[in-house]
Design a binder for these strands. Structure first.
Length: 467
DNA sequence: TGTAGGTTCGG
DNA sequence: CGAACCTAC
């Protein structure tokens, strides 16, 4: 018997752990570990957990077609996982546990402890890099170190990719006999965890193999060519909207790239801007592995952060969290996040720049807030993005890159469609004035919590200061 | 994956 | 007077 420990890899196709477990036809049981207390410590977003649950429910049925049963271990913290898995392996007489690596420090430590426990009990542990296209450590500089800048990393990454030409794995082999699942209600026992979950728009984020692959194909066939011109407009559905699926592993990045490559029918996919987004994801994961302090919330460039005096003003942070800064584009973006669990990528940059540069609130608070709310929350990409915005990351934005919320709004939501959708109070404000800080105050919108010009100047003075 | 403030050029 | 371009932050 083989055990497959599923985590954020809820898919049958191109799942190395699952594929190789099924290879031997020795009988396979899948297992998940529920650790609500750990989720809380990690600020796991309730919408993301609900998506994960629903994808797991769909996957359970798909696994049954391969004669693979599902066991659910109800635990609390990571430190309870080793013994629980060892006991299950013993009960099922499993000789091997398969899983796909996760890269944050706590997860890696958990996996090390699990493997130690299992191996002490005579059970083999096999890990795979199913979450990445190219495994960590395989894209390095001439000196053998990790790239600190994206562009050369991207060049080396493409070279590596063309050399190896990895192909996604197919459907795992069907097992001789259905292994028994836990007897669980239809919701797999998640009812007890209701407090940790939040409903999300299941029309926008359908789960299950068919729906997820339909979404991928639809994007690649219809939208990827317009991606470069459309992706920056929050009122337009111009992004792939695949990130939640990548986050829970309903899709692998290799499947995304393969789909792009096959559909393009030429070498055009090599120039696709969208491919860059997949490579950014690889970049930040490689970085997380090469540099453990990233998991500990250390900035990549402490010498820059040292110059910054974070303002500890809870009232300002709270106003940002609630979407009541008085800056329409910032507030509309935050309301989109609070209501739907998702925020358009351009707006993530706008609100992150606003929080770190204009309010000068520590980027860690923003990063934690995003983790707690985003349906596509991703530890590595989130840290990378926030450090980028705060100018303390690898290949960070220059410190003087400060977004002007009003200009961003006028440029990327020229008709104010996005603003109106989330801030209907602005309906009667003349079109041109909707972008202004303080717009709609007569209709109950908040006054601006900071004055842009002076806040920008303070940030410049702060970041610029010689040490 | 920026902005401000300048200059130049054409209508 | 605005668009286009340049440069420092």
């Amino acid at each position: 018997m083989k055990l497959v420990w599923l985590r954020n890899d809820l898919r049958r196709l191109d799942n190395p752990a699952l594929f190789y477990a099924c290879d031997t036809q020795a009988g396979v049981t899948a297992v998940v570990t529920l650790t609500p207390q750990q989720w809380q410590l990690h600020s796991e977003a309730p919408a993301r957990l609900a998506l994960w649950r629903d994808q797991l429910i769909a996957l359970k049925a798909d696994l049954a077609e391969l004669n693979i049963g599902l066991r659910v271990l109800q635990l609390n913290r990571f430190d309870q996982v080793p013994v629980a898995l060892q006991q299950l392996a013993t009960e099922l007489k499993a000789d091997t546990v398969y899983f796909n690596y996760e890269y944050p420090l706590n997860e890696r430590q958990r996996d090390r402890q699990v493997c130690a426990e299992l191996e002490a009990a005579g059970v083999r542990c096999l890990g795979y890099h199913g979450e990445l296209i190219i495994p960590p450590g395989q894209v390095v500089t001439g000196q053998g170190g990790m790239f600190k800048v994206f562009t050369p990393f991207s060049r080396a990454w493409r070279q590596q990719y063309l050399q190896q030409l990895p192909e996604p794995l197919g459907m795992p082999a069907c097992q001789p006999e259905l292994t028994p699942s836990d007897r669980l209600p239809d919701d797999l026992g998640f009812k007890a965890l209701a407090a940790a979950l939040m409903p999300y728009d299941s029309q926008r984020w359908p789960v299950g193999e068919t729906a997820v692959h339909a979404r991928l194909n639809d994007f690649i066939e219809c939208a990827v060519t317009d991606y470069a011109s459309q992706r920056d407009f929050p009122a337009v559905d111009g992004t792939s909207r695949l990130s939640p699926y990548l986050s829970i592993g309903a899709l692998s990045p290799l499947q995304c790239l393969q789909c792009l490559k096959v559909e393009s029918g030429s070498d055009a996919w090599l120039d696709s801007i969208w491919m860059n987004e997949l490579i950014w994801r690889e970049f930040y994961r490689h970085l997380l592995v090469a540099w453990p302090n990233m998991s500990r919330l250390e900035p990549f460039r402490p010498e820059v952060e040292q110059r910054i005096s974070w303002q500890h003003q809870p009232a300002l942070f709270d106003a940002w969290c609630r979407g009541e800064t008085g800056y329409p584009i910032v507030d509309a973006a935050m309301k989109q996040l609070l209501t739907t669990g998702w925020m358009h990528n351009r707006l993530r940059m706008v609100v992150a720049s606003f929080l770190t540069k204009l309010l000068r609130v520590d980027w860690r608070l923003g990063a934690d807030f995003f983790m707690a709310h985003l349906i596509d929350a991703d530890f590595a990409s989130n840290l990378g993005g926030w450090q980028w915005a705060a100018s303390v990351g690898a290949d960070a934005a220059p410190y003087f890159r400060i977004f002007n919320p009003q200009i961003q709004s006028e440029k990327f939501d020229p008709d104010g469609d996005f603003l109106l959708h989330w801030l209907p109070e602005l309906t009667d404000v003349p079109r041109r004035q909707r972008h202004l800080p303080g717009a709609g105050q007569a209709m109950g919108r908040p006054a601006p919590i900071i004055e842009y010009k002076s806040a920008r100047q303070s940030a410049l003075d702060d970041y610029q200061q010689r040490s």
